[in-house]
């Protein structure tokens, strides 16, 4: 996936000379995950910029660059390092278009490697997406596989609105053949039914899509047919796709790494309860992180949803007759 992102960024840099990359260690080093490997050598230090170590500074200056007509793509090195930039993202980036009654657009993309399961030390495994999805003016998307990574990063960069682009870092090394000549067939903000099923719908995004698919496979061997939806966009959320699925299956489980409390799953549960009230055969269930800070990596497997926790939720849902 890291290579697919690299290819997508290269394509964006090639397509539009206003596109530029900014971040800590993204130039000579190529980024700590090598997502920007070789791009500075190819496009120069003015377009692939090693910035000082200050997240607020990166986003603040990128806003200025965007106001000057550039399309900056900022890398926040790790999820847990985004908070110093919170004001620039939430009070500035998100609101400038509204504040100026549409006069100023800020086509900024912020890439955020996120999520756990990589055995890291503190602040390197967080899932802060809900903070940003909660903020009007921002768009929030996340890829789950190399193919989407390649297409979605280009779509995000082309958007005239600010986009938070969350990259599931534990899937960086997932491999797949990516057709670099294929245009994306799905809109950036559309969810995708990954596998169709009839008994229950599982909605997941980013790193949890693979987990949901593994759970669905396991469930199938037990005779349960699971439909898995990759949400892809967290703001806006493609509720129509979820609706259609739940109208068919009557049961929904939402899975994410982030804390369940007031997470993306809470919004989905509320909306689907409104929209599919009379189709629901069981309450919408959520599987996710606990209401604790992200734990030390030696015990992170107990915090993160895994196949068994997803299957358990499926069982609990199906038990409601």
């Amino acid at each position: 996936m890291a290579k697919a992102l690299n290819a997508g960024l290269r394509r964006s840099l090639d397509d539009d000379d206003r596109v530029m990359l900014m971040g800590e260690d993204i130039g000579r080093l190529g980024g700590v995950f090598r997502v920007t490997d070789q791009l500075q050598a190819e496009f120069g230090a003015d377009r692939v910029v090693d910035t000082p170590l200050a997240e607020s500074g990166i986003i603040g200056t990128a806003i200025g660059l965007a106001m000057r007509g550039y399309r900056p793509v900022c890398e926040i090195q790790f999820d847990g390092f985004i908070y110093p930039a919170f004001d620039q993202i939430v009070s500035q980036l998100a609101k400038i278009h509204t504040r100026t009654e549409g006069a100023v657009t800020v086509p900024l993309t912020i890439r955020v490697p996120y999520g756990g399961g990589i055995g890291a030390v503190e602040h390197h495994s967080e899932s802060p997406e809900a903070y940003f999805a909660h903020t009007a003016g921002l768009r929030v998307v996340t890829c789950s596989n190399p193919d989407d990574a390649f297409g979605m990063i280009q779509q995000a960069i082309r958007s005239d609105d600010p986009v938070l682009f969350f990259e599931p870092k534990r899937r960086y090394w997932d491999r797949a053949d990516v057709d670099l000549d294929a245009a994306p067939t799905v809109g950036l903000y559309d969810a995708r039914v990954v596998i169709a099923g009839s008994d229950l719908t599982v909605v997941a995004y980013g790193p949890m899509v693979a987990t949901a698919l593994a759970a669905a496979k396991e469930a199938a061997s037990e005779g349960t047919s699971i439909e898995v939806i990759d949400l892809r966009s967290l703001s806006p959320i493609d509720f129509d796709t979820i609706d259609r699925s739940v109208a068919k299956t009557g049961r929904l489980v939402v899975v994410h790494e982030a804390s369940v409390f007031l997470g993306i799953g809470a919004e989905i549960a509320a909306r689907i309860s409104e929209r599919c009230f009379f189709q629901l055969e069981a309450p919408v269930l959520r599987v996710g992180g606990y209401a604790t800070p992200y734990p030390p990596s030696k015990v992170e497997q107990y915090y993160l949803p895994d196949v068994d926790r997803v299957l358990d939720a499926i069982d609990r849902s199906l038990a409601v007759e």
């Binding site: 009557g250 009230f277 009379f278 189709q279 629901l280 055969e281 069981a282």
Partner: peptide, 12 residues
């Protein structure tokens, strides 16, 4: 009455 337990599709 609110004390009867049944899920929404069954209620309908």
């Amino acid at each position: 009455s609110a004390t009867v337990a049944a899920k929404p599709p069954v209620r309908r």
